[in-house]
Computed example of a mutant assay.
Amino acid sequence: MSPERTFDARKFRAARRAADRTQAQVGNAVGVNEAAVAKWEREMTTPPSEKLAALAAYLGAPIDKLFPRTGPATLADLRRDAGLTQQDAARVIGTRSSVPVRKAEGGKRRLADVYVPLLASAYGVTIAQLLAAQERSFRVDVPDPGASGDRPGTVAAPEAPAINPRSLAERIAFLLESSDARLDTTDAGLAVRGNMKVGRQVLTADLVAAMRSGNHAGGASEALEALAMALDAPPAFLTSDDESVHRVVSAARLLTSGVSGMAARGDGEALTPQMLDFINDTVAKIQSGLPKDQGSGRRPE
């Protein structure tokens, strides 16, 4: 059984009053009516587990104190704490059906590797924490990496805000941090490599330095494309303002660098061509505005 969070009506009512919120205000904050909140406080019903995190945040109370859990989190717990349904999670990984999510949560079939960083980002946890939660979903007792360090052989990832860098400077810094250690990441080195990639003189060391600092004015998309290619990243990561593109590319980048590092240590295999095709296809569809379940790319089952 999943160690779902416990709901204490009296504690919840006390927290609401301490926050000086009405039942109607609480309901509006989480998308239910006043009558539903009243029923919670009268112990007639309990809130959906996906709403507990939002309730705690709205009342300014730590979720682990207001709605404590009796054991380490499973995949379903992480999803609920993020306020997502299984169908929401399916949209995160770009599948029409929630079957991959439901089977992983039910201990039937583990998530495809390419889905792991996407869900870790959406759930606001590290990849190691998500993998540990997945093992618990399969009734394997493993410690929380967040409390005792990453398990050997897993890929560590930053918390959710870091996996979705927003500004140009943040995106470039992210690419630099996750790039191959053998790559010449000096301004001059990147300029030379970017120019070679695009086949013409586009970048200079000064221009690369300006883009790194975020001072480069938008509009010179060919320079951004060249820099992205110099860092072995899809040009859309730097040229597009679409946060969906940023999230998919950065999550995939973390998985690529992490799995490649594991392969180099003999701990696993690098990403398959099919996975890379899926990542590139997803980015292309986001850019073109097509639904992610259409097109030629085939998702892992």
Score class of each variant (00 low, 15 high):
residue 4 E to P: 09
residue 7 F to S: 10
residue 10 R to M: 05
residue 12 F to C: 12
residue 23 Q to E: 13
residue 23 Q to S: 09
residue 26 V to Y: 04
residue 26 V to T: 13
residue 26 V to R: 03
residue 32 V to S: 03
residue 35 A to M: 07
residue 49 S to A: 12
residue 51 K to F: 01
residue 57 A to L: 09
residue 60 G to N: 07
residue 67 F to L: 04
residue 75 L to N: 00
residue 78 L to V: 04
residue 84 L to S: 10
residue 88 D to I: 09
residue 90 A to Y: 04
residue 93 I to P: 07
residue 94 G to V: 00
residue 105 E to T: 05
residue 108 K to A: 13
residue 111 L to S: 07
residue 112 A to T: 09
residue 112 A to H: 13
residue 118 L to T: 01
residue 119 L to I: 07
residue 130 L to M: 09
residue 131 L to C: 09
residue 142 V to M: 08
residue 149 G to H: 07
residue 154 T to Q: 13
residue 156 A to Y: 12
residue 157 A to I: 02
residue 159 E to M: 12
residue 162 A to S: 13
residue 168 L to H: 05
residue 170 E to T: 03
residue 176 L to C: 11
residue 176 L to H: 10
residue 180 D to F: 03
residue 181 A to Y: 05
residue 184 D to L: 10
residue 193 R to E: 15
residue 196 M to T: 10
residue 202 V to F: 02
residue 208 V to N: 04
residue 212 R to Q: 06
residue 214 G to P: 12
residue 215 N to R: 15
residue 218 G to N: 11
residue 225 E to S: 13
residue 226 A to G: 01
residue 229 M to T: 08
residue 233 A to H: 08
residue 234 P to R: 03
residue 241 D to I: 06
residue 241 D to K: 12
residue 245 V to F: 03
residue 246 H to K: 11
residue 247 R to V: 09
residue 248 V to K: 02
residue 250 S to F: 03
residue 258 G to L: 05
residue 259 V to Y: 10
residue 267 D to R: 08
residue 268 G to F: 03
residue 275 M to S: 13
residue 284 A to I: 02
residue 284 A to F: 03
residue 286 I to K: 05
residue 295 G to T: 03
residue 301 E to N: 13
